[in-house]
């Protein structure tokens, strides 16, 4: 399987994603510079975290118009797997590949912490190595992870089962006190209607090796490999 990690000026989790694919998963991976205008030969794309374009205007707003983005959007529309992490999630929202927008955290603080997440579905390309209602722990690091969408969109996300991860406590209970940033419906990660594009604020790439204190992120990458093998590609 061949991954591409898209790099914008200000991305800062690109090397972590590259490392996980190459060293931990043992698969092929390339960096894809944002000035590139075409994409060929990739099975999955990772839009990494960071502060693309210094978060100017709105998070992800400028990156969304990088030369590489029409190719990323085509790739997603053709069913290619796209994983947007943190700033990558914000870019996917701005690009319209996922619905909604990000607001500043409720606390106004940049939060760097470990959070518990509840897995809502395991029949997706990103969660097939997890169990439904399993609680996993992943790091977060963001100032604008307060996911917002209107009522109509939230109803659609719920009806179409597109919420993959919610913030919760260690026993899996959701509640405002376990929601670090004020996100609507405790949302930490959502997929598009076709299920091939995931945006999530927590960082699986920072939690995919025992030496880093946890393997829960690995399960998400392992799910991608599994779904690729199942598809017989």
């Amino acid at each position: 399987m061949k991954f591409g990690v898209v790099v914008f000026p200000g991305s800062n989790c690109d090397a972590d994603c590259y490392h996980v694919v190459q060293t931990v998963l043992g698969h092929e991976v390339d960096y894809i510079w944002h000035q590139q205008a075409s994409l060929t030969g990739y099975d999955a794309l990772i839009i990494p975290g960071g502060f693309s374009y210094g978060d100017y205007l709105r998070t992800g707003a400028i990156a969304r118009f990088s030369p590489i983005m029409p190719a990323v959007i085509d790739f997603a529309n053709q069913g290619g797997l796209v994983l947007g992490i943190c700033n990558g999630f914000q870019i996917l929202l701005e690009a319209g590949l996922l619905p909604g927008a990000m607001l500043k955290n409720r606390s106004l603080k940049f939060i760097c912490d470990k959070v518990n997440l509840k897995v809502k579905r395991n029949d997706t390309a990103f969660t097939n190595q997890l169990r439904v209602n399993e609680v996993i722990t992943l790091p977060i690091a963001h100032g604008e992870g307060n996911y917002f969408c209107d009522e109509e969109t939230l109803t659609a996300l719920r009806d179409e089962n597109r919420i993959l991860f919610t913030y919760c406590n260690a026993s899996g209970n959701e509640g405002v006190e376990y929601n670090p940033n004020g996100s609507v419906a405790n949302i930490a990660g959502i997929v598009n209607r076709q299920g091939n594009v995931l945006g999530m604020m927590p960082h699986p790439e920072r939690c995919s090796e025992k030496i880093l204190g946890g393997m829960d992120g690995y399960s998400i990458f392992a799910s991608i490999l599994q779904s690729f093998q199942e598809a017989g590609r």
Binding site: L57, R58, A61, L93, E94, G100, A101, L103
Partner: peptide, 8 residues
């Protein structure tokens, strides 16, 4: 297209 995000 760019300056405002109609969602918010």
């Amino acid at each position: 297209r760019l300056l405002a995000n109609p969602v918010i």
